[in-house]
């Protein structure tokens, strides 16, 4: 147990480990509190593929329209409907007609579905990407990189050169993957939630927010790094 905690501290840092364990404690003992911490990251998009040319040739990427039913992305129907209503676009990856994964993005603003907050993009050359999903059996295949490469090209064609997203501060693997792909940290936010109460502490405006009902939430205006 101590070794596991030491490993977590090494991967996540001391404060994030404390927050993660606190959330684990709430879940484990069914205490109706939750703790979330997100890093906001920005990733420059490039036309040059990350995937070598000869890989991923049998993987096709296409737009999945909202009318497709059932939607191949394994999320509750209400979540899928809400995403399309917000104006999100879903790009699907298909390996020889078999659904292999998807990439969601939106170009204006996105209402988070895990906590109560809104992300607004400050610049028109940015998109917000979320829920990049790969079917488990394709997780070690070139599907993810093919999806990322084609999504990048698709966004660049629309004049978008940055993709922003949030990653959980408790997911070392995701943080490591994003950093190795060149993601740059643009901020963080921590949420402590119980019922409709939410305390938000963030490194970016509004820095501190307290909400007592669902209609009140922090709005984060996000932009790529200036350098």
């Amino acid at each position: 147990m101590l070794q596991k905690i030491k490993g977590l501290i090494r991967e996540l840092g001391f404060l994030n480990t404390i927050l993660h364990l606190t959330n684990y404690f709430f879940l484990r003992f069914k205490i109706p509190f939750r703790v979330f911490k997100y890093y906001f990251v920005a990733q420059r998009l490039y036309e040059k593929s990350l995937l070598p040319d000869r890989r991923g040739r049998n993987i096709g990427i296409s737009d999945i329209p909202s009318k497709v039913k059932p939607h191949p992305c394994p999320r509750p129907n209400a979540v899928i409907i809400d995403r399309y209503q917000q104006g999100a676009v879903c790009l699907g990856a298909y390996k020889e007609h078999e659904f292999a994964g998807c990439f969601w993005y939106i170009t204006d603003k996105y209402k988070e579905d895990e906590v109560n907050c809104l992300y607004k993009l400050a610049n028109i050359d940015s998109a917000w990407d979320f829920d990049v999903y790969v079917v488990p059996k394709f997780r070690m295949s070139p599907v993810f990189l093919k999806l990322w490469d084609d999504a990048s090209k698709h966004l660049i064609e629309q004049g978008i050169h940055w993709s922003l997203s949030r990653i959980s501060a408790f997911n070392a693997r995701s943080i490591s993957s994003h950093l190795r792909m060149g993601a740059q940290l643009v901020g963080w936010a921590c949420f402590i939630c119980t019922g409709s109460f939410q305390l938000t502490i963030a490194s970016i405006f509004p820095f501190l927010h307290i909400s007592f009902n669902k209609s009140s939430y922090p709005v984060f205006i996000l932009m790529p790094p200036k350098n």
């Binding site: 990350l50 070598p52 070690m140 070139p142």
Partner: peptide, 28 residues
């Protein structure tokens, strides 16, 4: 933690370069 699909592609490329064999996508 560094071992993800991106790492897999990089490792396969390095192994192909070193040993001179080719690995098809379906073999992964």
């Amino acid at each position: 933690p560094e071992f993800d699909s991106m790492a897999v592609v990089s490792i396969l490329t390095a192994l192909e370069d070193h040993y001179g064999f080719l690995v098809e996508d379906d073999e992964i």
